[in-house]
Nucleic acid binder design. Structure first.
Lengths: 262, 262
DNA sequence: TAATGTCGTTTCACATAGTGATATATACGT
DNA sequence: ACGTATATATCACTATGTGAAACGACATTA
């Protein structure tokens, strides 16, 4: 790989900082990005002129431009999977009346790309674009369990095992042990590990290279998670995920669940 | 405004081309971007190294990286409005059982940022991230009607009045005439102008500068759009939109609907 | 109101960093 | 094996981005 273009790298650093919050001053931004003020300013100015950043008229603060919304679709198979998953998600939603989530792995994070909300007034619901960590979600664990070792290692190295509840898995060793179980089962369970009172089951979705890159999950208040219902979900959800993987171009699903992807 | 950084401008041109489709070869991309191949390559190479582009191992084609999903939230008040709108959308959804849309104006396009689907099996539904044009949607017309003349002009200049149905407004003069009516009413109606058999009503949402930047709409099959129901919607929807504008920091709502924003 | 501080923004001489015609590598088809 | 399509690599040239310093606008204080 050749040398990356420096300005572009800097530009994305700026964009990532803009993405952290609602607004930031030039001074703070330059500082966080470790860039001289004029350099940061020129980058912002360019983004402004392209519509990828906005400047608040009153406070003069800078923020990401709404033009970034343009990229929601088509982000690398994003469009595909969302469209293909829709009917399955609706079927699951109708069958169980709980919230169905679809999320992708991006770097070391889980990003929700589609959420079908339950119509219960007492329900669990994340929003599209929300981010979550791998170690505390059914989705994350479903994906992680089937990742090739090098990539898993990379993710776990950058993961901070934040504790959200008393049941959150907070060290790598326990997580790895847990992932072995997930791999055996073919689905993952998050039993109040992300939020108290919330139970979630997840199943991995594979791309045509037999690699897990997304997952689907059903989340519900634990009080509604009766054994019988759960058993049915554990039967249906992985089935749906497999079907979706096949739709996405997986030819031999056994390779996905096997020990090592070819 | 100073001179924009050229590489950055080129980079976003490349990104926008990548965003158009599922995958593209270096050759085609360089051609579409009017860039020499090595230049295009270096830009792609940089995006690759940053994770903002992917290259298909088999076909060698390039596409946008999923890392762009990271920017879905926090795109300029995007997060705010979505969170604030949620309860209102749910209330409308419960009240009428039809699909409720929330969309923003970005450039000359409408981008859906949240969709709450009706539970009718016969329903209208766009997806989050979908784009639509101003002239053919209730959302677009609701926003356009309250835009200051210079911005409206700019949008209409770049608009191609694509005809979707026999009722689509296909020239600027008719649209402007129509917008006067919308401004008077305070809400917009799309009567089979985007899709045959689909009726939609929309109301504008203003930001703290009293400018319309988003809108909410209710869409339904025309067969279900009975006069009585419509009358209720036309009463409720603008009320909700006004409330949302106030939540977003508008202090004097009359200024928004007045002749010229101060 | 003058003095001081703190921003965002502009300037400009300098050299680094990006350019792109050309060359090479690699894959595939015949 | 040859031709032809790619995607990559090279490298001399100079256009382009750099950042210290200066500027202007506004706010805060004396």
């Amino acid at each position: 790989m050749g040398k990356p273009i420096k300005v572009v790298t800097k530009t994305f650093k700026v964009i990532e900082i803009l993405n952290q919050g609602k607004g930031i001053s030039l001074k703070d931004l330059a500082q966080q990005a470790s860039l001289p003020k004029p350099t940061a300013f020129r980058i912002l100015d360019t983004l402004l002129s392209l519509g990828y950043a906005d400047q608040d008229a009153a406070t003069q603060q800078f923020r990401l431009g709404s033009k970034f919304l343009t990229f929601v679709k088509s982000s690398s198979a994003g469009a595909d999977i969302i469209a293909l998953a829709k009917p399955y998600m609706e079927k699951l939603g109708e069958a169980y009346g709980e919230t169905i989530n679809l999320a992708r792995l991006t770097g070391d994070q889980i990003i929700y790309v589609r959420v079908l909300e339950s119509d219960h007034s007492f329900r669990i619901s994340d929003n599209i674009g929300d981010r979550a960590s791998v170690h505390s979600t059914a989705i994350g664990k479903a994906i992680a369990a089937f990742l090739p070792e090098p990539q898993l290692k990379e993710i776990l190295n950058t993961t901070t095992f934040t504790s959200f509840t008393r049941k959150t898995i907070i060290d790598e060793a326990s997580l790895r042990k847990h992932l072995v179980l997930v791999k055996l089962q073919g689905y993952s369970v998050d039993d109040e590990e992300g939020h108290d009172g919330v139970l979630c089951i997840g199943a991995p979705i594979f791309n045509k290279d037999n690699l897990p890159f997304a997952a689907m999950s059903i989340s519900m208040p634990k009080v509604r998670a009766k054994k019988k219902v759960l058993d049915n979900m554990i039967r249906d959800l992985p089935k749906v995920a497999v079907q979706l993987s096949l739709d996405l171009g997986v030819t031999d699903i056994r390779k996905c669940f096997g020990k090592e992807p070819s």
